[in-house]
Structures are given as C-alpha cells and as structure tokens.
C-alpha cells in the first residue's frame, strides 16, 4: 500500500505529509494505519475534504494535523491522539472518545463529543445542535468541551458527566443568546458553564442553575487558559466575565417513573 501511495506521501522533519486530495476515506485511513505500523508518529494531512473517520479507534499519543474540512466521526473511539484541524469539523467528532485532544481552528456541526468518556475538544468557532450529548465520566477521566463562539439547541442532552464551557466570544452574552434552547435536557451528571446569564426558561427537563463555587472557577480557568493558548486569545479578559453553571437536579432524574420504585417511597 505504501508503494501504491508513494506519490502523495513525503516526509518533512519528523512529520509524514499526506496529500489527501481525491483519496477515498477508507484508503486514507488505511494509509495512516500502515504508516503507524511502519513507525510514523506525526502526520500532516493536506487537502482534506470531508474524509470520514480520521483517527477512528486510534490508540496512542499520535499527533495529526489536518488542513481542510474533516468528515464525520473524526477521532471516534480514539484513545490518545492529538488532532489539530486548520479548518472545520463535521458531525460526531470525538464520538465515544476515551482519551486525546481535538483542537479545531474553525467551527463544528452537530453531536460533537457524543458520549465521550475522556479527552478534550476545543472549537474556536461555533458548534451545532446536541453538542456534548450523553458525555460521561469515569474515575479520573472527565471529558471537556470548550467552544469559543456559540452552540445550538439541546446542548449537553442526556449528559452523564464531563464539562462543557461555551464562551460566546464576539457576542454580548448580556443581550444576545450564545446557546440555543433546551439546555441539558435529561442531564444526570457533569456540568455546563456558559458565559453570561442564562435564565431558567432556556433549560430542558432535569437541568437546573447552580451556584458557581471555587472548584467550578478552577475548572473554568484551567480550561479557558488551555483554550486560549491554542488560539492566541487573551484568557484574562475572558475570565473577567460572569458564568452560569447548569447541572442536573439529580443523578437519578427518572427514578420515580415506575410503579415499583414508587412503592418504595
């Protein structure tokens, strides 16, 4: 396979550079896999134009730079790689990710970070609907999504763990909505931090507005600083803002639905 694709691969310092123009996703991913088996650790993929499943199920601390628009499920089931996208990402980036980082200089679409259990996603621009849906956490693994601009409806739906931070930069959160409606519908774990003030009518079932404590402030600061370090932004300026915390009313919001559990009351 490496022979076959010799023309589109070259090496520069410790990077392998792949020109993905016109390459089918399955071939591109197989090529990356072959290169990994061959010992390559750092990749720069040029002319990416919607190829799906890049770094899908990848285990280990590989470094992948993508120029262009990455297709669906970028870094799905990933377990360790760092992926930097100079462009946009599409649906399901970081789907069920266990560990790793996805750093996006552009924007993202729907269900970013679906069911992710660990790792971090930083999106400089905006994201679509149902972002962070069913995020989880497990022991020391606490996934984080930080979005620079705005997020659509159903942010953090069914969320069971992890942290989502929405900054709404270049917006005036005191007068403009930076997040859509139905925030945290069915949330039963984790927390969402939104810059500015959010009123209760924006929340979905089982979500509630909670006081921000010292620990929350630490989480916001740590992740906002990391976010700003990737995109050359001024963290101190952002951290001056007020944030609203949204968290579940209970870890067991649906427990009272059944006749047997009501008997036990």
């Amino acid at each position: 396979m490496l022979q076959e694709f010799k023309k589109i691969i070259r090496e520069e310092e410790d990077f392998v550079i792949i020109d993905a123009k016109g390459i089918y996703y399955r071939e591109l991913n197989e090529l990356i896999n072959e290169l990994i088996l061959n010992g390559s650790k750092k990749f720069r993929i040029l002319n990416v134009n919607g190829q799906r499943f890049i770094a899908d199920g990848l285990r280990g601390g590989y470094y992948i730079e993508i120029y262009g628009t990455a297709g669906d499920d970028l870094g799905g089931f990933a377990n360790g790689p760092t992926i930097v996208i100079h462009g946009d990402i599409q649906d399901g980036a970081g789907n069920t990710m266990n560990e790793g980082k996805i750093i996006v200089h552009g924007s993202g679409t729907d269900i970013i970070g679906h069911s992710m259990r660990g790792g971090k996603i930083f999106v400089k621009g905006e994201v679509g609907y149902r972002v962070g849906i069913h995020m989880k956490e497990y022991k020391e693994q606490i996934p984080v999504i930080v979005v620079g601009a705005t997020a659509g409806d159903f942010l953090g739906e069914y969320m069971a763990g992890g942290r989502i931070i929405i900054l709404g930069l270049e917006k005036r959160p005191e007068v403009e909505d930076i997040v859509g409606d139905w925030i945290g519908t069915g949330i039963h774990g984790g927390a969402i931090y939104i810059r500015g003030v959010i009123t209760k009518d924006k929340l979905g079932y089982s979500a509630n507005i909670k006081e921000i404590d010292e620990n929350d402030r630490k989480i916001i600061e740590k992740n906002v600083r990391e976010f700003c370090s990737y995109f050359g932004l001024d963290a101190d300026e952002i951290l001056k803002s007020k944030f609203t915390k949204i968290a579940p009313i209970s870890r067991n919001p649906f427990a009272a639905m059944y006749s047997d559990s009501r008997e036990n009351k």
Binding site: R52, F53, D72, G76, F77, N95, N252, A255
Partner: peptide, 28 residues
C-alpha cells in the same frame, strides 16, 4: 449513577447515519 440508554442512538436518524456508525466501528 443512572445508566440511561435513550430510545434512539443520538447519531442515528436515518439509514445513512446507521451506515456511518457501522463503518465507524469497522474502521476502528
């Protein structure tokens, strides 16, 4: 913590979406 499996998969609303999950698993 409650372990909730919602009725639909969050990323599957069509046969095309199902295909995406099938191939995400095959790729992985």
């Amino acid at each position: 913590s409650d372990a909730i499996s919602p009725a639909p998969h969050h990323d599957i609303y069509s046969i095309e979406d199902l295909s995406r999950l099938i191939y995400a698993l095959k790729e992985a």
